[in-house]
């Protein structure tokens, strides 16, 4: 068995395969299938200061090699999480990371301060890239000043590992990555979904209640991979690669492009067992090339 362990700032992971926020609930839903302690880490469903009902149905449209979603951060709020969900999941033996959201900088801080008190949450992922909410979300993540402002204030309020989740809906994602690195982010994760839309030609209506939504799945993988590669070259902090990862080869490609770890997201809808297959597959890959540690392939792209 090769050493699959990687480190994201102070976060020690037993392997680089984690689950993406918004695709694995609060970990219990995946634990219904298998013991989630086998995973590198779990990014929990996006959480806001107070209850959000999310967008109207329909929120989903299947597209070639992927899907659009417009959930709109439906969640019961951070207090509900702390009182009702956290006690049930806190002892899972894998890092649980809260995905922090807000409509204003103050709201991001409100959630962050509450999460800071939770012993068993070793990191947060600051979501400045949700494309499906009217206020906040992606609005912060598409300009350097916006991304800097929210990162700077959240950094002041948070002592543990701070990961910032970046939007791909920008001209130059490496600029945004450098901006949040400059404000004290410990890591960046990318990409969130691409803004897209789908129309029913027969009814001549949009397929989503919100007209536009976030595209995910293997359809976006080549673009996500390119962005991860660009960002990994632009920053010194560890990069977490996300975007259409469906199998071992996909995950290894992201590691080669410079990601220290990956998140599997939409693939879980297809098969929640995929992350376990990838963990096993990475080990087989390392053994095949007689490498002792997964660290040997991180950024190992040969030009």
């Amino acid at each position: 068995m090769a050493d699959l362990g990687v480190k994201i700032h102070e976060l020690q992971l037993k392997n680089p395969v984690m689950l993406a926020s918004g695709t694995c609930g609060f970990a219990e839903e995946i634990n219904d299938f298998y013991d989630v302690s086998q995973l590198g880490g779990i990014f929990l469903k996006g959480t806001t200061p107070r209850n959000r009902d999310g967008n109207l149905y329909p929120r989903m449209a299947e597209t070639p090699s992927g899907m659009l979603n417009a959930v709109g951060l439906q969640n019961k709020g951070i207090d509900f999480f702390i009182e009702n969900i956290y006690p049930r999941i806190k002892d899972y033996n894998t890092p649980l990371i809260v995905n922090v959201n807000g409509s204003t900088v103050e709201e991001y801080i409100e959630v962050t301060e509450k999460v800071n008190e939770l012993d068993k949450i070793p990191a947060i992922e600051l979501n400045i890239s949700c494309p499906n909410v009217k206020e906040g979300g992606m609005a912060f993540g598409v300009t350097c000043p916006g991304a800097e402002a929210v990162t700077r204030e959240v950094r002041k309020a948070y002592k543990k590992t701070l990961i910032v989740k970046l939007s791909p809906n920008v001209t130059d994602v490496s600029e945004i990555a450098r901006a949040v690195e400059g404000q004290g982010a410990d890591s960046v994760s990318l990409v969130n979904t691409f803004v897209g839309m789908a129309i029913d030609a027969e009814t001549r209506r949009p397929l989503l209640s919100t007209v536009t939504g976030g595209l995910s799945g293997p359809a976006i993988k080549p673009i996500a991979l390119r962005m991860v590669w660009q960002v990994a070259k632009a920053v010194k902090i560890p990069v977490i690669g996300i975007g259409g990862i469906m199998n071992t080869a996909d995950a290894i490609e992201f590691l080669l492009a410079g990601a220290s770890a990956v998140q599997v997201g939409t693939a879980l809808f297809k098969d929640p067992l995929i992350p376990l297959q990838i963990i096993k597959g990475i080990n087989e890959y390392l053994e095949k090339y007689k490498m002792e540690s997964v660290k040997q392939i991180i950024g190992g792209l040969q030009m």
Partner: peptide, 22 residues
């Protein structure tokens, strides 16, 4: 039979408005 992506409660796409919320 609302449209669903996952079928096991993680994608939150197949929601139905109810007296207990979505």
């Amino acid at each position: 039979e609302n449209l669903m992506a996952c079928g096991f409660g993680v994608c939150l796409c197949c929601i139905e408005p109810t007296v207990k919320g979505n």
